[in-house]
């Protein structure tokens, strides 16, 4: 048998590494040559995590070559998209409908926003074979622990691999915490049975960029005592104390109109003004 390739993709903390260890072990138990490759360290800190598993009679590269993965398992929608090029034409995409939006996404702030992609399988039409969109996190939650979502995903993945349930179960038992073996095996089987969701049933995140609004930070210099509270609190660092310890507006463009400076100014010196005609209540 030529080497089969599976790519597991998710976010640090989702159990991608554990799931890939289970798959590799299941393949080992089934008598295959196995290579499984992942990256540790900084990337795991809430960043994107990917693991490659290849197994077969012989395996050379530990990395799945592009466009050759039999299965791409996305533990989260955006990560599934990120690694989609690894999926072979006709390969199966298994993806948890969960969406983990990084703080940097959809930021209202001017400097930190990268939008989160809409959960829309039609956007990748023609690039995959089967698409199995499941509510793995929800299923795991129903079973009692959302952390078992990775086992649910692997159950769905198992539909496209030729490994026996016994091998899977043995592998799960070897790697998951002892107290959670039964739960994870149950989750695994739930994943095997999980229904594919209709994307239309999945609510929008509602995280599309909001309309830009502009504000004027009106500082009454005669009243301001340069106490430093507003620079210490402004979420956007619009305000600062200069070298002479005088309050200055350094970045009015970045103001989101949150008015923390206004409400926390002990000297009544700041007023956030929305220009007339702008949205959100001029005054």
């Amino acid at each position: 048998m030529s080497a089969r390739g599976v790519v597991l993709a998710g976010v640090g903390g989702q159990g991608v590494v554990l799931a890939s260890a289970v798959l590799a072990e299941a393949a080992l138990q089934s008598g295959f040559e196995v290579k499984q490759s992942e990256v540790h360290g900084m990337a795991q800190r809430g960043g994107a995590v990917v693991s490659h598993i290849r197994y077969g009679d012989t395996v050379a590269s530990p990395i799945v070559p592009l466009a050759t993965a039999d299965v791409l398992a996305g533990f989260e929608w955006a990560e599934a998209l990120r690694w989609l090029p690894y999926l072979a034409p006709g390969g199966a995409l298994v993806v948890d409908a969960r969406r983990i939006v990084p703080p940097g996404a959809c930021r209202d702030h001017r400097r930190w926003g990268v939008p989160y992609p809409p959960l829309d399988p039609t956007s990748i039409a023609g690039r995959t074979g089967a698409v199995v969109l499941i509510d793995a996190t929800g299923i795991a939650g129903t079973l009692g622990n959302v952390k078992a979502a990775n086992s649910v995903v692997m159950g769905a993945v198992s539909r496209f691999l030729d490994l026996s349930d016994a091998a899977w179960e043995k592998a799960i038992a070897r790697f998951v915490p002892p107290r959670t073996v039964d739960l994870n095996i149950e989750a695994f089987h739930a994943g095997q049975q999980a229904e594919t969701l209709d994307p239309a049933d999945i609510p929008e995140l509602g995280l599309d960029p909001l309309p830009e609004r502009h504000y004027h930070i009106d500082v009454n210099e005669a009243w301001c005592k340069d106490c430093g509270i507003c620079p210490s609190i402004c979420p956007e660092f619009c305000l600062a104390l200069d070298d002479a310890h005088r309050l200055v507006v350094v970045d009015e463009e970045a103001c989101t109109g949150c008015r923390l400076c206004e409400v926390l100014c002990p000297d009544f010196a700041i007023r956030i003004v929305t220009p007339v005609g702008a949205q959100g209540g001029a005054r």
Binding site: W223, K225, C227, C265, P266, F268
Partner: peptide, 16 residues
Amino acid sequence: MPHVLCAGCAHGIVGR
């Protein structure tokens, strides 16, 4: 105005 309270005294926040 300006009021007599010290710079950074939070009383003004309360007053506001």
